[in-house]
């Protein structure tokens, strides 16, 4: 009966396996063994397996560090059956027979199938250029002194660096968990999210400038940025891990929830706090972005009338 010996890595994942069609298999660090392992805590001739009925009998060959049984499906302690896990030195091994059941193959996530598209130069380069351009534009628009590249470059470079570091983090995680880095994929995703965020906040602030409605207020802006964060995290995780879609979405939602809670707790301090300064909408935008027609001053004055009642009510709640 052929025995398959798997060397397990982090999280019980198979790192390496040996398939040997023999009744007796010797394991150790020495080159005379059937399976040669490099763990320094393993003796030169550590143990021997002998096929016996449905399983194997293990004989410890007077090894220095001995053998530790992690799991053994067999009811007979001396017999190890398919699926048993043992540890010698610092190495975990699993013994399985060819008939050992497997999990079903997973469906490839759409994003992952398409990830090769993100890897293309024709995708990520334009994204990079677009992000670079929007950052440059925003720095340029907020510059009031004479334009100097030396002032703008550190700002843009540090923002790009942050995106780069984010992509490196996710690709390292992917490399570790799935042995797939998808660096360009992760990089493109973050670039895309940053563009989406810029576009979204610009659109919302233009809308809120024109229509002073609660619909486009701070709450909605926060909601939009949290949604973008949720989408980005979920996409990053899809590429970097094997999480099921339910686990992935709930994990992301929990993370975003924590971010929202931390943010609210930070703001809670100032809730209801008295300020001698007025908090008013100070947004102003270039005339091209103004699409609404103004009221007459009488209409405006009529609209602010309720403010007096509000203030009177507030004055009563000493």
């Amino acid at each position: 009966m052929a025995v398959i010996i798997e060397v397990l890595g982090w999280g019980g994942k198979r790192r390496q396996y040996f398939k040997i069609d023999a009744d007796q298999v010797s394991i150790g660090r020495g080159y005379d063994n059937d399976i040669v392992l490099s763990d320094p805590y393993i003796s030169a001739n550590h143990l021997r397996l002998n096929a016996c009925g449905d399983g194997w009998v293990i004989t410890d060959l007077d090894s220095l560090n001995g053998l530790q049984v992690i799991k053994n499906p067999s009811t007979d302690e001396s017999l190890f059956t398919s699926g048993a896990e043992i540890k010698l030195g610092r190495t975990k091994l699993r013994l399985v027979a060819e008939s050992y059941p497997l999990e079903d193959a997973k469906i490839l996530h759409g994003l992952e199938r398409d990830t090769n598209k993100l890897n293309r130069l024709s995708v990520w380069l334009p994204l990079l250029v677009a992000v670079f351009a929007t950052q440059l534009l925003s720095v340029y628009a907020s510059t009031l002194a004479e334009w100097e590249w030396k002032n703008a470059i550190p700002v843009i470079v540090s923002a790009q660096l942050a995106i780069f570091v984010g992509a490196i983090f996710w690709s390292l995680l992917g490399r570790l968990i799935r042995h797939e880095a998808h660096f360009l994929g992760q990089y493109s995703l973050i670039l895309l999210a940053s563009l989406l965020f810029t576009g979204c906040s610009w659109l919302l602030s233009t809308l809120s400038y024109n229509f002073s409605s609660a619909l486009f207020g701070d709450m909605v802006q926060q909601l939009a940025s949290m949604s973008i964060l949720l989408l980005l995290l979920s996409a990053n995780l899809t590429l970097a891990t094997n999480l099921s879609s339910r686990a992935r979405w709930s994990g992301c939602a929990a993370f975003v929830g924590v971010v929202v809670i931390i943010g609210s707790v930070g703001q809670m301090k100032s809730w209801g706090e008295f300020s001698p300064f007025p908090q008013y909408s100070s947004t102003l935008a270039a005339p091209a972005l103004l699409v609404v027609e103004g009221q007459t001053s009488e209409e405006f004055l009529a609209d602010i009338d309720p403010l007096f009642q509000q203030a009177d009510r507030a004055a009563l709640e000493k």
């Binding site: 909408s281 007459t296 001053s297 405006f300």
Partner: peptide
């Protein structure tokens, strides 16, 4: 005093100029 209560809106003056007003 109470905290400030504010409102804002656009107006068009007699000369046709658009302004943002904060009260």
């Amino acid at each position: 005093v109470t905290g400030f209560q504010c409102d804002h809106g656009f107006t068009q003056g007699a000369s046709g100029r658009q302004s943002k007003n904060v009260f």
